[in-house]
Design a protein around this nucleic acid. Structure first.
Lengths: 341, 341
DNA sequence: CTGAAAGCGCTTACAG
DNA sequence: CTGAAAGCGCTTACAG
């Protein structure tokens, strides 16, 4: 009942284990007759090489470690889907590590575990909070563990990073609102310590400046990415600025909450209040009214991250290509619907 | 620059590798002085045992394989989060395999890969379509690979399964609508070949019968779980049955689409049309109007699946407990909001 | 309390 | 074209 080993195959055919190994690995120089008999035996016995034993000797596990966060959100889910898809295509398995609080303490422990599992590389896809990335980067360099970051500060020295241009997200959304005639544009940000949230605010500032609109700090309210926080933020904003005619919500869930508040307060969308969200989740088209949003190419970002990591790992001819750290920023795209003028 | 091995530690201290192994594994019978010196050396060198080598010899990888689907949906994401959380707690790593089309062909390939990776067990969380589960079950028995199924037909012989009572979901939703005075209750189903979708329809039928309401086949429209399909289905239903006063949508996304259609057609919610969804996604509370929905305890289902698998695998004293196949059905819960009378 | 030997399942030079 | 030997990093009996 034990799984058959390479030795079992060898015994069946009457050759050495070495010969079977050659067949498995498509080495040349196997007599056609031997080849056929070995292949037959492999089929008969249902033999499959033990990946663990192979990894032990080759030093490569063909596994990549994913450190991710907040799978209950749309963005991270899409990203993971993209990662898994591309990884499977390149022959990697994925070890998933979900982080609940992206804090310092866990970083070292996480990477130690991944190293002990001999992952070939790591994709670091938790938000940049405090110096957790810096630490991860240091450890990866120390251990010469290939690592690719997803999102976060692209100016971090020496790190390979695949990201979305979050400043552009804020800018595009705000420009669109201004172009539609908005004079006073509020913003509901994501959690303030998230890099992405900060960048979107920066884009909002830029665009207001460019359009000659005033930037008041009271136009900024922090949300926590949830619909409920969007609702509360909208109530705050509209109370502070009765003449507010547009709100940029940093994700679609919060935009939903903003809409809810607007309905409740009797503001017509988009006549009285224009609203733009971020993510372009599939449901956004069926919000009432349908939501103008910004599409991020998260699946593609995930796929690119894997390809970049694969290049760092070295592929078949390991180390032959010296890939220097590089940053890729994908551009977001505006999807106009009924919630904005 | 190479990772230190057990031999490096041994050499540093001046003992045998065997002694170091005893320290790592907390075996008794190590002289206190030796113990201390070995532990010091382990720290100094930053030694961590190679999980691969350990697995090779122990036959246990402390890794479980997850076969999942549709991470971009809320349900599967939550489930995976629950699985990962409990797995980490029990010391398992997770290998994630996303399936794009849950069809026959991939089953064998998938399980072969997982077996080659020497996973200790598998959680099978893709929808039951056709006989994909039967095949998976057979292979797992053949290979004596512990396997736990999530959702799907609980009457399948001999399989350990953690599920949600989907018939109850349909029944609770429909009873609630009837209790609110609905006389004609339409249903927007999920994809027809999904077990969950079928069960919810069955619950809807049961409840209509119990309440003495008529079950007409034209009250059933198939959706594909998306908001857009919900919108179209609602238009169909309201066209066929102008007197329809309630719609049960098999998930919240489709419920959102139903609401969209109702707004568009000028039906007031809930005065003219009551609506109930399923999943109770966080956004449901901020749909306009806020959506009555059915909560499934998916995170808990994930956690339970891991614990059940751990029991099958055998824990520390492997095989000492003979866990016979068993089924657990979690009960759903109605969350009443403004979309239903 | 401690060590020498064998082996988990495979692959990599090295002979022939 | 094929095989005997050594070894990847660890653990498991077996001696002492």
């Amino acid at each position: 009942m034990r799984r058959p080993t390479i030795r079992d195959v060898a015994r069946t055919v009457g050759v050495s284990a070495q010969t079977v190994s050659r067949v498995i690995n498509n080495h040349p120089d196997v007599a056609p007759d031997t080849l056929a008999r070995v292949q037959q035996a492999i089929k008969d016995l249902g033999y499959a090489p033990d990946v663990l034993a192979r990894s032990l000797i080759s030093g490569r596990s063909h596994t990549i470690g994913i450190v991710a966060y907040g799978l209950e959100f749309y963005g991270p889910s899409r990203l993971l889907t993209g990662i898994e898809h591309q990884a499977a295509e390149l022959g990697y398995s994925i070890t998933l590590n979900l982080v609940h609080r992206p804090e310092l303490a866990e970083v070292k422990h996480l990477l130690n575990m991944l190293k002990a599992r001999r992952v070939d590389g790591v994709i670091w896809a938790i938000p940049e909070i405090g110096s957790n990335r810096k630490l991860a980067r240091e450890i990866s360099l120390d251990a010469s563990l290939p690592m690719v970051f997803v999102n976060g500060d692209p100016t971090a020295v020496g790190a390979t990073l695949i990201g979305i241009d979050n400043v552009a997200i804020g800018r595009i959304a705000t420009q669109h609102l201004a172009a539609g005639g908005a004079r006073k544009v509020g913003i509901v940000t994501g959690l303030a310590d998230w890099w992405e949230a900060q960048q979107r605010v920066a884009g909002w500032r830029q665009a207001l400046g460019d359009c000659g609109l005033s930037v008041e700090e009271s136009l900024i309210v922090e949300g926590d990415w949830s619909a409920e926080s969007g609702r509360q933020a909208a109530i705050d904003l509209l109370y502070r600025h009765p003449t507010l005619d547009a709100i940029f919500a940093s994700n679609d869930q919060m935009a939903l909450g903003v809409m809810f508040a607007a309905h409740k307060l009797g503001r017509r969308i988009p006549e009285d209040l224009s609203i733009v969200g971020v993510d372009n989740i599939p449901e956004a088209a069926r919000f009432w009214p349908s939501l103008t949003s910004i599409r991020q190419r998260l699946r593609e970002a995930g796929g690119r991250a894997v390809r970049a990591l694969d290049a760092l790992i070295g592929g078949p001819d390991r180390g032959s290509h010296d890939i220097s750290a590089q940053t890729t920023l994908l551009q977001p795209e505006l999807i106009v619907r009924a919630s904005s003028r």
